[in-house]
């Protein structure tokens, strides 16, 4: 049938858009980043800690932002894990298929619907003053504040994947352990965790992928300092937040450097997400 062929070709043609977007993204970002890489060298750029926009003396490097991104995201993961894992145990194990579990998971889902900028605003006016009161950082900006907000932001993603993985552990195995006299906690640690391990790892890797690229909330809370963080309460910048913070006044070499950081961020998140997806696919 002729019409069938035409339609099939049309469908195929539409899919080329994805290829074009990808090729275009890669081309534009690389082209935009080349001036920075040329000036400072690829590794020189990635491993330099300079950030000096003074004209004639310009020098830019990505290391502080790579460090800031890695540290805040890992901190977020560390804070997120006990919370998300407990919530998943509550929803998918202790109160499985009950009304209270549905209620809890609806509330957790709501977290995913809160726009990043609202997290930033809320963090700015409620979390930041609390951290400031602790006295470790003057106004409460910094790595810890950002990590905490990031943790809250990735909780719904980590939880929903953990829920699925935990509820996939076969009932027969849990019952076998119970029939041997295990307590619920022992079942969780000896049956559920070992059976769900790779799925959980993938879930937290995907959550990490989210944290790496989060922009607004971090931008509002991290303190906008172009240095490698010196401690938990030190200010800093992430790859995403430095783009947001510095983009407004950027042109020339600085703009190119920001695009180069964007390219780096793109590569890192794509890699992290790909790893997570591969593990999930193997698992399912």
């Amino acid at each position: 049938m002729a019409s069938e062929k035409i339609i099939k070709n049309l469908l195929k043609a539409s899919s080329v858009i994805i290829l074009l977007i990808f090729a275009g993204m890669a081309y534009s970002m690389i082209k935009g980043a080349i001036p920075a890489f040329k000036e400072f060298g690829l590794f020189g750029f990635i491993f330099s800690t300079d950030w000096n926009p003074t004209e004639g003396n310009e020098s830019y490097g990505a290391l502080p932002f790579v460090a800031g991104t890695v540290i805040t995201s890992l901190l977020a993961l560390v804070i997120c894990f006990p919370l998300a894992f407990s919530t998943s145990l509550f929803i998918a194990e202790y109160y499985r298929k009950t009304k209270i579990a549905t209620m809890l998971s609806t509330l957790v889902d709501l977290l995913a619907g809160v726009p990043s900028i609202v997290y930033g605003l809320w963090g700015f006016y409620t979390i930041r003053p609390l951290i400031a009161e602790l006295g470790y950082s003057g106004q409460g900006y910094g790595i810890f504040t950002s990590g905490l907000i990031l943790a809250i932001m990735i909780i719904p993603y980590a939880t929903s994947i953990s829920n699925e993985i935990i509820s996939m552990v076969p009932t027969e195995l849990k019952e076998a352990a119970y029939s041997l006299g295990a307590t619920r906690m022992e079942v969780i640690f000896n049956v559920i965790l070992p059976n769900a391990r790779s799925g959980l790892v993938a879930g937290y890797i995907l959550a990490l992928g989210r944290a790496l690229g989060e922009t607004m909330a971090v931008t509002m809370l991290i303190g906008n300092a172009n240095i490698i963080p010196t401690g938990l309460f030190s200010p800093g910048n992430t790859m995403a937040s430095v783009i947001a913070n510095q983009f407004g006044e950027a042109d020339g070499l600085k703009l190119s450097s920001l695009i180069a950081i964007g390219l780096l961020l793109f590569a890192v998140t794509a890699a992290v997400n790909a790893i997570g997806k591969v593990i999930i696919r193997k698992y399912a």
């Binding site: 994805i18 534009s28 970002m29 690229g213 922009t215 995403a240 783009i243 947001a244 695009i259 794509a270």
Partner: peptide, 16 residues
Amino acid sequence: LTDILQGVPSVVLGLI
């Protein structure tokens, strides 16, 4: 590629 696109941080899409 669609999956990867979904994971691209929105700030990067802004740059694009």
